Simulated assay, not measured.
Amino acid sequence: MTTLDRALLTTGLFIPLWLLLGVWFTAQAYPGYQHLQQAMSQLGATGAPTAAFSPWVNNFPLALLFALFAWGLARRWRRSNVALASALLVLLHGVASLGTGAFACDPGCTPTEPSFSQHMHNLSGLLMFLSLTLAALLWVWMALRTADSRLLASGSLLCAVVSIGTVALMARAAETGQLFGLYQRINYGVALLWIAGLAWYSLRQPVSGQAKLPVA
């Protein structure tokens, strides 16, 4: 594995930490912000005290990290079409992260008459959810097929199940107004921990093991 490959894959290890620190840092400048109740998107919402810099601390750097990790994933597992498809999904997730930052949600993020920016923000958020959930499901198949890591297969399946389950909880919380922030953080936090786990696995797996990977 080349130095470039290692550098690209290592970005996946930093993604959860970046989100954790970025959201915490941004929230310090938002008086009264409640992590358990409020969506992370409210930090960059129109009219929010942190709207001007939140995307530059969170969405845009994360988009770059996802793009770099996707590149590393594609280089590392280039002999597998399934792995390449997962890398494309990770790249799509990065593009969607860019979209959620470029298109701020309306004040409160739950307007009765959403603006164009709110619609684009919601679409980007949907793409973020679908892309990483599908990528995780692909790696369930990959890990089981190669028999190299049942732990990765289990983790990938757990990520997909938790992502789908917490989306349902988020939908209910949006109606009741209770604990939306908590469920969102569990939803995205588990997905990003999976990214870090995939990065760790890709870095540790011997290059010679790549020959075991199926082409399809």
Rank of each mutant, 00 (worst) to 15 (best):
S54E: 08
S54P: 05
P55L: 10
P55K: 09
P55S: 08
W56Q: 11
W56T: 05
W56D: 08
W56I: 02
V57P: 09
V57E: 12
V57Q: 13
N58K: 04
N59Q: 03
N59W: 02
N59G: 04
N59P: 05
F60A: 10
F60W: 09
F60V: 08
F60Q: 07
F60Y: 15
F60T: 01
P61H: 11
P61D: 01
P61M: 11
L62W: 02
A63R: 07
A63K: 07
L64N: 04
L64Q: 11
L65N: 09
F66N: 07
F66A: 00
F66Q: 03
F66Y: 02
F66M: 03
A67M: 05
A67Y: 02
L68Q: 06
L68F: 09
L68V: 06
F69P: 05
A70S: 11
A70M: 08
A70E: 12
W71L: 15
W71T: 12
L73V: 09
L73G: 10
A74W: 12
A74I: 02
R75E: 12
R75T: 10
R75Y: 10
W77D: 13
W77T: 12
R78L: 12
R78W: 10
R78M: 10
R79Q: 15
R79W: 01
R79E: 14
S80E: 05
S80D: 00
S80L: 02
S80P: 06
N81H: 14
N81E: 15
A83S: 15
L84H: 01
L84P: 07
L84M: 02
L84I: 06
A85R: 14
A85P: 12
S86V: 05
S86W: 10
A87G: 13
A87S: 15
L88I: 15
L88P: 11
L88G: 15
L89G: 05
L89N: 02
L89W: 04
L89V: 03
L89M: 01
L91R: 01
L92P: 06
L92F: 10
L92M: 12
L92I: 06
H93M: 14
H93Q: 15
G94S: 09
G94C: 09
V95Y: 00
A96F: 02
A96M: 00
S97I: 07
S97Y: 11
L98V: 05
L98T: 08
L98W: 12
L98P: 08
T100D: 01
T100Q: 00
T100V: 05
A102P: 03
A102M: 00
A102W: 09
F103R: 01
F103V: 06
F103S: 08
F103M: 01
A104N: 07
C105T: 06
C105E: 01
C105L: 04
C105Y: 10
C105K: 03
D106Q: 12
D106S: 06
D106R: 07
P107F: 13
P107A: 14
P107Y: 13
G108I: 00
C109P: 00
C109F: 04
C109E: 00
C109M: 08
T110D: 15
P111Q: 10
P111W: 07
T112S: 14
E113D: 14
P114N: 06
P114D: 04
S115I: 03
F116H: 01
Q118W: 09
H119L: 04
H119Q: 03
H119R: 08
M120C: 06
H121R: 08
H121T: 03
H121G: 07
H121F: 11
N122F: 01
N122G: 09
L123H: 11
S124W: 08
S124F: 11
S124V: 05
S124C: 07
S124I: 08
